[in-house]
Amino acid sequence: MEQTMNMSKTTAEPAFDVNSSALADRRVDGTVGKIRVDNPRMSTTDVDVYYGDKHAIQNVSLDIGQNEVVAMIGPSGCGKSTFLRCLNRMNDTVAGCKVTGTLLLDKEDIYDPKIDVVPLRVRVGMVFQKPNPFPKSIYENVAYGPRIHGLITSNADLDEIVETSLKKAGLWEEVKDRMDQPGTGLSGGQQQRLCIARTIAVSPEVILMDEPCSALDPIATAKIEELIDELREQFTIAIVTHSMQQAARVSQRTAYFHLGKLVEVGETNQIFTAPKHKLTEDYITGRFG
């Protein structure tokens, strides 16, 4: 992953120059570090989110680069999950939620009224905190996306998609003999991988993961982390995690959120070895969290 500084092609304010001075890494509103990347898949600028009266996210700008894993860490309630849910407009389903700012996917504003959420969500898939397989068979769980989107013309196509998706999710060997059993009968880790398989079955470009391992045991977690590393080759991944170790293990860049603000962004190594912001340092060293 290239982390060299570059001009942000999408920055809203031309006056703002991230390279200009010693303060290059510090933005006016407080985000420390390089928020922009060379070839962003998604790029957000000045995002604010309100739940009714509550100002949940304040002025967050962040790029998610092609084929990289961005980890979002921070104490509970800091808005990292909320930010993640903005990226495929899952917040639309929450009553009273308002999102402002610019969120671009391949330079297209995803909150543009002309943009349809259905194709958006096909391109930006999501895996949730708690494994949520549908109460259907394993096969039907994976086939659900291709079926509703009409991606397949024959049963053979579908079989193939299901098989490759499950293989990519590393679940194929474990379930190939019991495809017609309910997905809810799998173990927690298997369920989560099933959900990942379900997500990649519609060939998304970006996968959002909201604490995908928080409900899993260490062995299942390790498997998912391994999987994330493999998936990076094909997909762009944004992952919210509670575990700093996990962020350190799977991500290339890490963003630290605090009380609805993005405090610091940087290469994962740098964040964990030499955080620039006091809050990040306190969090990393375990003074609070």
Partner: peptide, 8 residues
């Protein structure tokens, strides 16, 4: 994929 989705 995305084309198919748009078409449907």
């Amino acid at each position: 994929t995305i084309d198919i989705v748009e078409r449907n």
